[in-house]
Each structure stands twice: as structure tokens, then as C-alpha cells.
């Protein structure tokens, strides 16, 4: 770890101010950033912890929308998002207890790891990413691996998840990291079904629109039987070829639909 200055503001305004300085970087739960710092892979001159800002924390459900503060930990979502059980279940399966007690939804979405779980939930739910300056629709927010619509210094203050009629997330774990080798989130709303896939594409999380069309017409596992995605454009590594990942998307989509009931 290189040396750096550290600030721990208690209000959003102070955090925004602190992040306005050169080479300052926001620190959420630190479950990605801290290991990077330890390996000297990042060299921020200042870290601004968002952990002490109470207004960024909490889970509320109102008017069919579940709102999760950007600084809310996975553990809290798992425990308190009972209005959206599929989301609570997703949160309860991220990492291990240490990760879930430190890592935050805002941190995960800001990082946009191509194998993270939350991006699939946000995209399949048609969530709105709320920041200190604006609201961003999930469809506009994810812009490829580790890339988002966030500007420098912009802080995710909350995520609004419309609560679906039915939903499920199925993660097939990469054996070593236990991140998603492929994860599929299926959410059924009155106006249609959304299917979001994480872990698979070289472009990061994406929506599988063909499956959405079939499932919007017939929400059953059989509706996507035989439907497949090409291996091209899928990530390929030690743990799975592009073809394997493409295959898993089909399998997991069926299973997610079945699990959603």
C-alpha cells in the first residue's frame, strides 16, 4: 500500500467536496479497492470513505419501489429487502460474511465488475441509479466492463428497484473466486419480462432481449427452450470458454424462470 490521505466525512456534501480534490477516490466498503491498494495496483492521493454518511444507508419499500441507499451493505440488503426477495437472496450470496458486512450496493455498481451480481439485478429490474447530481436509468448506466455513466467524483446515493411480480437470480459460481461465471437475473413485471446476464459478456452485464420477448409472451422455462446466444463476444478464460458461458446462459435462464415460479 502506498501512503495516502484519508477523510471520513459524515455528510454527502462534505464527501462531494472532498472528492473534488485531485486524485481523490471514493471508498465504499473497500472490498475491491483495499485489496488493490495492498497490491500497490492503485495509488490515490486521498481516499474519501463514504462509510460514515448515514443518509446513504438504509432499505425502504414504498409504492412498489424498493430503495436502497448507496452505502447500504450487502448484509443489510439480505436482511432487510424482504419486499424484493430475489434481491435479498442475491445479496445473501455475494462473497462471504466479511464481504457482505463491508461491501455496499453503491460500491458494487460504481465498480461494475463484469462478474458482479448487483449489475444483473439493477438491469433486470429497470432500476434507477440515483447520484448526488442526477438519476440514471440502468439501461444507460452500464457501459461495459468496469465502465459506467458516472462522472468523476459522482456518488451513488441510492438505487431504486421497481419490485417485480416474480423474479429470481441464479448464479453459477466460478470455482475459485465464486464470483458469477455466469449469473442470470429474470424479473417479471406487468408490462413484460427483463433478463439480465452477468459474468459472461466481454461488454459486461447485458440484457438478453430474445429471451425477454419469449418470456414476456409465455413466462415458463419451456418458452426459452432451444434459445441460445452465440459464443462470440463471451469472455473466455481458464474457468469457462465463451461457448460454455453462452450455454450456461440458456440453462440458468430456464432455471431462473422456474425458480421465480
Amino acid at each position: 500500500m502506498y501512503s495516502f490521505d484519508f477523510e471520513r466525512p459524515t455528510t454527502l456534501d462534505d464527501a462531494v467536496k472532498a472528492l473534488g480534490q485531485d486524485e481523490a477516490q471514493a471508498l465504499g466498503g473497500g472490498q475491491t479497492l483495499i485489496p488493490s491498494l495492498k497490491q500497490r495496483l492503485a495509488m490515490p492521493s486521498k481516499l474519501v470513505s463514504l462509510a460514515a454518511i448515514e443518509e446513504l444507508k438504509g432499505v425502504t419499500a414504498e409504492g412498489g419501489v424498493l430503495t436502497v441507499g448507496g452505502g447500504t451493505t450487502h448484509g443489510t440488503v439480505a436482511a432487510e429487502a424482504s419486499a424484493y426477495p430475489a434481491l435479498a437472496a442475491l445479496a445473501s450470496n455475494i462473497g462471504d460474511p466479511a464481504v457482505r458486512n463491508r461491501g455496499t450496493v453503491g460500491g458494487s455498481l460504481a465498480n461494475n465488475d463484469p462478474a458482479a451480481c448487483y449489475p444483473a439485478a439493477a438491469l433486470a429490474s429497470g432500476a434507477t441509479i440515483v447520484t448526488n447530481t442526477r438519476e440514471i436509468a440502468a439501461d444507460d448506466y452500464f457501459q461495459g466492463m468496469f465502465t459506467t455513466a458516472l462522472d468523476e467524483g459522482e456518488i451513488i446515493t441510492a438505487v431504486k428497484f421497481p419490485i417485480p411480480e416474480k423474479a429470481a437470480y441464479i448464479k453459477f459460481e466460478q470455482p475459485a473466486s465464486r464470483f458469477a461465471l455466469v449469473g442470470v437475473f429474470v424479473a417479471k413485471y406487468s408490462d413484460g419480462v427483463k433478463v439480465a446476464v452477468t459474468g459472461a459478456s466481454e461488454e459486461g452485464v447485458f440484457r438478453w432481449t430474445e429471451a425477454e420477448e419469449k418470456l414476456s409472451a409465455d413466462f415458463s422455462a419451456g418458452a426459452v427452450e432451444g434459445l441460445s446466444l452465440p459464443a462470440e463476444g463471451m469472455m473466455s478464460d481458464l474457468h469457462g470458454s465463451g461457448a460454455y458461458r453462452a450455454h450456461l446462459i440458456g440453462v440458468l435462464t430456464k432455471r431462473a424462470v422456474a425458480a421465480a415460479g
Binding site: P175, A176, S177, F179, L238, H239
Partner: peptide
């Protein structure tokens, strides 16, 4: 079932952490 230490053709260790080496 899990463990595998893998080098690429240039001799770089691909499984250099628990992110890729499965215990």
C-alpha cells in the same frame, strides 16, 4: 475437482491468486 496451477505460453502464472486458484 478444483486446484490447478496454470502458466500461459510466455510463462506468466495465470493462477496467481485465489481469484483463479480454487482451494
Amino acid at each position: 475437482m478444483l486446484e490447478n496451477c496454470v502458466y500461459d505460453e510466455s510463462g506468466q502464472l495465470l493462477t496467481a491468486s485465489y481469484m483463479d486458484y480454487a482451494m
